[in-house]
Every structure is written in structure tokens, then in C-alpha cells.
């Protein structure tokens, strides 16, 4: 514990700020989820929303929209935002690389690859089939990356993992582009792949929620070990950490969180890469704060961006990934300039 305290002082962790951010972030998240249920292409007033919750009447289309479209969509956005941001935080902490994001573990590219295969086999897959294929692909991608990283003689180093991830990602993406070109399914696949949360239904949330909640809880338990691992493998070993075990668990958590997120929402870039940085700027370098902070800020950003994506050009939807980037980048640049310190 003495070492932990020293660490805090030297790297300037900020528990008070972190506490404030967690509290206010949570309040803002609840408000923004309410907003996301309130606003949409169809104009629905507050009273109707309340009634749809308390006295649900399936005959009313407004009640249907609230119950079956907007509420699952809001919930999914929050869960996915949190999952992506937390996986990004774990990846950056574990590999000690500011450019690491969940997508470089091969998870996203693997999911995309399997979705391309699924579409090539059957051009009209059901939502559930696609989700399962995507999740299997996420596992495949991460499996290859992890396999390549650990087969090599000198063992599994974080940098090697990141490099293997980048190489495998680009190969899998190339393969899926090849498949989509050959079978002429590029447009259909892009609908799944760049999906966002627009077409989320309850079935998605029901499948998504348990996986993600398990992943998020595990990540909270991991937080302390990641902080130590972030000091470097040698230091972590010196402090008595079983680094291999921690890395394996961390990778499983990333796989669960990102795999579930990707299989429902396709690739939403930026959140996994940038939210952990923003959180680190705000709360300091202790992963006990970074991980819950990332979860809340990631959820907040995706819920807000999803709401905005419906309001920018109604009744059309703007891709949520672009909204997250355009909203997040100015803030991110401001912080990078102001703080600009490493991991």
C-alpha cells in the first residue's frame, strides 16, 4: 500500500475530481437517457411517455415507439458506450500504448470478417444469426491475435500483442473486403457493420446486458492490477503480480465487452480510443478511477451522440460514429494541449 500511495503522489491521481466526475457523470447520463427517450422523429409528449411506462397500451403507436424502440435504444447506447470505453482503457493500460484501442485486438475485424462470411453464405440472415456470427468472429480475431502473440519464443509482451493485433486486424479486414467485393455484398454488409444503435430491439438488450455487466464488474476488479501492470512488466512482477494471469483475464474482459458491443452496433470508432484519454486527463492515472470514469463518460457520449444523430437531419439518421467524433474531438484536443502527458 505504501507503494500505491507513492505512486499516487508521483503521478498525481485525483480522487476528489474523480468522485465528482463519477457523481455528475451519472446524473448527466440519467438526464441524457431521458432526453434520448424524449426526442426522436416522432413527437411524443412527456405525459404519453409516462403513460407508456405506467399504463402501457399496445394499441397506441406512441406507446409502442417508446417501449419497443426508444427505451431499448437508449439502454443499448449506454451499455455499448460504457463497454467500448472500458475496453479501450484496459487495452491502453495493459499495452502501455496511447494508440491502443479495443479494435486492435482483432475483435472488430474478426466480427466484420465473420459477418461477411455469414452474408456470403446466406444473403438474408436474421438479426440474431448475425449477432452470433459477429460474436464468434470477435472470439476468432482475438484468438488469432493472442495465439500469435504467445506462440513466439520470447513470450507475450504488450507491444507484441499490439503489433500482432494490428497485423491480424489489417489481414482480416482485407479478407472481408475481398469477400464483400467478390459476392457483391458491400452495401448490405456496411448496413450491419456501420450499424450504430438505430435498429436495436429488446432481444439485443437482453443478450447484451448480462455479458456486458459481467465484463464491467470484472473490469472493476481488474483495475488495481492494471494500474500496477501499467508501470511495466518488470515492476509488476517485482511487486508480486502474476502478469500473465492478469493479461489473460484482461483480454477476456476486452473480448466480452467489445465482442458484445460490435455484434450489436458494428464499429463505432473513437469512443474506445479517446474516452480513456479524456478520463485520464480528468482523473489521473489510477485505473481504479479511470475504469469507472471511462464507463460513465463513454455511456454519456454515446447516448448524447445517438440522440444528436436523430436530431441533426430528421427523419434521417446521421451515423453515430461521426457525431461522437465531431462532438468529442474539440474537447479532446483542448485536453491534449492542456495536459499532454503520457499514460
Amino acid at each position: 500500500m505504501a507503494i500505491g500511495t507513492q505512486q499516487k503522489n508521483r503521478h498525481n491521481s485525483r480522487p476528489v475530481v474523480a468522485g465528482l466526475i463519477l457523481t455528475f457523470g451519472l446524473v448527466l447520463l440519467i438526464i441524457s437517457m431521458a432526453l434520448s427517450i424524449l426526442y426522436g422523429a416522432a413527437d411524443i409528449d412527456l405525459l404519453t411517455i409516462w403513460q407508456s411506462l405506467t399504463q402501457y397500451d399496445p394499441a397506441q403507436s406512441a406507446h409502442q415507439i417508446i417501449r419497443n424502440l426508444r427505451i431499448p435504444r437508449g439502454l443499448a447506447a449506454a451499455l455499448i458506450g460504457a463497454a467500448l470505453a472500458v475496453s479501450g482503457a484496459i487495452m491502453q493500460g495493459m499495452t502501455r500504448n496511447a494508440l491502443a484501442s479495443p479494435s486492435i485486438m482483432g475483435v472488430t475485424a474478426g466480427a466484420g470478417f465473420m459477418m461477411a462470411v455469414a452474408m456470403a453464405i446466406n444473403s438474408q440472415p436474421s438479426t440474431l444469426t448475425m449477432m452470433l456470427w459477429a460474436f464468434a468472429g470477435a472470439g476468432l480475431g482475438a484468438g488469432i491475435v493472442f495465439g500469435v502473440g504467445s506462440i513466439s519464443k520470447s513470450g507475450l509482451t504488450p507491444v507484441k500483442l499490439a503489433l500482432a493485433g494490428t497485423a491480424v486486424t489489417s489481414m482480416l479486414s482485407a479478407l472481408s473486403s475481398g469477400i464483400t467485393i467478390h459476392f457483391n455484398i458491400a452495401k448490405d454488409l456496411s448496413f450491419w457493420y456501420a450499424g450504430g444503435v438505430a435498429s436495436v430491439q429488446w432481444i439485443h438488450v437482453q443478450l447484451l446486458a448480462p455479458v456486458m455487466i459481467i465484463g464491467l464488474i470484472l473490469s472493476l476488479f481488474l483495475a488495481k492490477s492494471i494500474t500496477v501492470l501499467n508501470l511495466g512488466d518488470d515492476v509488476a512482477k517485482g511487486l508480486g503480480q502474476q502478469t500473465i494471469l492478469v493479461k489473460v483475464i484482461a483480454i477476456i474482459v476486452v473480448l466480452l465487452l467489445t465482442g458484445a458491443a460490435v455484434s450489436v452496433a458494428g464499429t463505432i470508432g473513437f469512443i474506445g480510443l479517446v474516452i480513456p484519454h479524456i478520463t485520464r486527463f480528468l482523473v489521473g492515472v489510477n485505473y481504479r478511477w479511470i475504469i469507472p470514469g471511462s464507463a460513465i463518460l463513454g455511456a454519456l457520449l454515446l447516448v448524447l451522440a445517438d440522440t444528436a444523430s436523430r436530431m441533426i437531419n430528421p427523419p434521417f439518421e446521421t451515423p453515430v460514429g461521426t457525431v461522437t467524433a465531431l462532438v468529442g474531438v474539440p474537447f479532446f484536443l483542448y485536453l491534449a494541449r492542456k495536459e499532454g502527458r503520457g499514460l
Partner: peptide, 19 residues
């Protein structure tokens, strides 16, 4: 490190604008 962070941000912004 600042160069990298700012690069990530600029990349994200331009990629979004492209879309």
C-alpha cells in the same frame, strides 16, 4: 506524446468529416 494524441484527434475529426 502530445503529437500522437493530437494526431489521433485530427484523424478522428477528418475521418468523420469524410463520412
Amino acid at each position: 506524446i502530445r503529437l500522437i494524441l493530437v494526431g489521433i484527434g485530427i484523424n478522428a475529426a477528418f475521418s468523420a468529416l469524410i463520412i
